[in-house]
Design a protein around this nucleic acid. Sequence first.
DNA 1: GCGACAG
DNA 2: ATCTTGTCGC
Length: 257
Amino acid sequence: MSEIAERVRRVLDDPGLWPREPKEATALQREMAGRVREEPLDADAVRYVAGLDVSYARDDSALSAAAVVLDVRTMEVVDSAVFSAEPSFPYISGLFAFRESPPVLEALGRLSVTPDVYLCDGFGLAHPRRFGVACHLGVLLDAPVMGSAKSVLYGKHSEPGDERGSWTPMVAGRSEVVADSAALAAEGAEVIGRVLRTRAGVKPVYVSVGHRVDLEGAADLVLRLSPRYRVPEPVRHADRLCGEHRKAVLAARDDAP
DNA sequence: GCGACAG
DNA sequence: ATCTTGTCGC
């Protein structure tokens, strides 16, 4: 069994990490947030990136998670894994990780290639308690994780320029669009993420540090991973894979009750 | 108390 | 997230 698979098993089997009540989950986030570490990420040294995503049935009766590993140097898929089950935690904004992490970890435990860094479809530090799913997975695995979300949950930001690669900082505070978030950052506001235009003229993505990466390195890598579409390639692949898997599971279930 | 609210 | 066809625009 791989090192990651062992770590995954240990984490999933620890009942103390998976509270059933929102109140306890929030308390656990506050506790675990102190373990997040920001470290320099040399995007040039990264080779394998794992994109993570989860797909749900409309009635919430099933879910499928996928992890797809890409070689950044060729942008080719080198490994992938999926896992299906029933949701064990409701969707509550801010407690997203308690719903998505278990199936994602199960998928990660089934990979053969060990990723250098993981990319979540969601936030890391850009979270009310500075502990989004990217931080959560990072701390549980003690691995480099970054987050790339498609909409804002928390934080003030201004709109980046229309060109691909243009960006503005996200700073702590209630979700709000401001005239100049870079000025707020320069005045000392806590920078929690970056609004990044991965495709000219298209809505940007929101990048934040999960664990053991830095914002600069994460944003650099996310941009490289998005040469053509708004959403970074590893996440696009994972999105497609878990969606197909989830549909297949539902079809099989309704086909042979 | 009211509104917001990753996927 | 999911349910869904066509359609507006470069």
